[in-house]
Design a binder for these strands. Structure first.
Lengths: 214, 214
DNA sequence: CCACCTAACTGAGCTGAGTTCAGTTTGATT
DNA sequence: AATCAAACTGAACTCAGCTCAGTTAGGTGG
């Protein structure tokens, strides 16, 4: 199992942090955060339940970490995908395609992020959880900002009609990430097909003029 | 507080079911399902914690009921809104507008539905919870079907370009309900403004042709 | 080889929200 | 007033998340 998307710089060589995160992504993705027993994660990693607390303050702290890393990856993928685009329209296509260029594990990570996004709304009691939550909120704002900036450039260049960039960014994001609510790896639809379809929707939404009424 | 959207036929005159549902909508909407204490709901209604179990088998059963009633209302609102439309384009606009013609309490209900939609994926252990879950799944399918049918008619009539109706329906729904992830009553944006904006997005997505590349 | 240190880990037990249960109250009906 | 069902309660149980005091594993300096 790939653990690149779940590793951070400050993990020592003996650390089981990435392994715990990977196991948690599996569990949370399969049966949901609430329904997974924290001890089940420990079993999959092959350690006692209490060893988890050497790495994470709580089950919620683990979830928030997964969410932050997912957001970090999304942010990085957007930047990389749009860096070399010659037009805003190309950048838009590249950004949407990048959002779906994911391994099955990363898909799970995004589904988890999407399912538990409401967790970011309210303050957390413990220090470390709150720190992760704040980091997530900043990354969400950053991702929204990335899309809004792309839109603003396209509008300034005359490629896109002028519309509220923030609301448009949120709408695009809603459209793009809404897919994780129903897509399942190995399901009837290929991710490539979905990606092309959604790209078309985004382009029409952003670049399209109002069609004639009727 | 309005309790129309939370009442069912088989509630007796002394029943506190609607009151419990209303209190639960408040709590679940404010701090989230997981973070609300079941006893807090009892306190708001003014009954002991155990009295809740006279009406609901569990906290999850209550949540699933809230979700089912929200879906029932969405389904009904769609039918009512689109019944008298003269064209598919008008029906589309009416359907989107109807999705946002909600009281603050119904907005909360939709936010709860959206936040906990993943709960419908996995089987429930207890009978009554599983019954509610199945009902929710059928209503979700029904709502998707409503939108897909609207799109198919528009395509058949030549109003909309031909595209996969189911994927388009899901995309529209993702766009429409995605708003509940960031909208808050009393926030900077009026629901009316959002409604108009999203309507435009939906129309361009569905009726728009691919704009010229560039 | 040993002393030492820190990261990694464990078993036993605590905590509290969700839940069960046996029994009581309330209110309508006859 | 007697009766019955719906509505309700207090005490106790469950069990997943979590705490804590103490142990093991692996690496480093003497």
């Amino acid at each position: 199992m790939s653990i690149e998307a779940l590793t951070e710089a400050d993990d020592g060589p003996r650390s089981k942090r990435p392994a715990i995160l990977a196991a948690a992504v599996e569990c949370f993705g399969e049966v949901g955060y609430e329904a997974t027993k924290w001890s089940e994660v420990a079993d999959r990693v092959g350690i006692g339940q209490t060893a988890l607390y050497h790495y994470f303050e709580s089950k919620a702290h683990c979830l928030l970490t997964i969410m932050r890393l997912g957001l970090r990856n999304s942010d990085a993928a957007f930047r990389e995908a749009t860096a070399g685009a010659s037009s805003s329209s190309d950048a838009l296509r590249a950004a949407v395609e990048a959002a779906y260029a994911l391994s099955p594990q990363e898909v799970q990570q995004n589904r988890i992020l999407q399912s538990n996004i409401a967790l970011l709304a309210n303050e957390r009691a413990s220090r470390r959880e709150e720190t992760e939550r704040q980091a997530c909120r900043e990354l969400v704002a950053q991702v929204e900002h990335n899309w809004a900036e792309l839109l603003e450039r396209g509008m300034a260049a005359g490629e896109f009609p002028r519309r509220d960039p923030q609301m448009m960014a949120r709408s695009l994001l809603g459209l793009v990430v809404g897919v994780w609510r129903w897509y399942r790896p190995g399901g009837p639809l290929e991710l490539r097909t979905i990606s092309d379809f959604i790209t078309g929707c985004c382009v029409r939404m952003v670049a399209g003029r109002e069609p004639d009424a009727g």
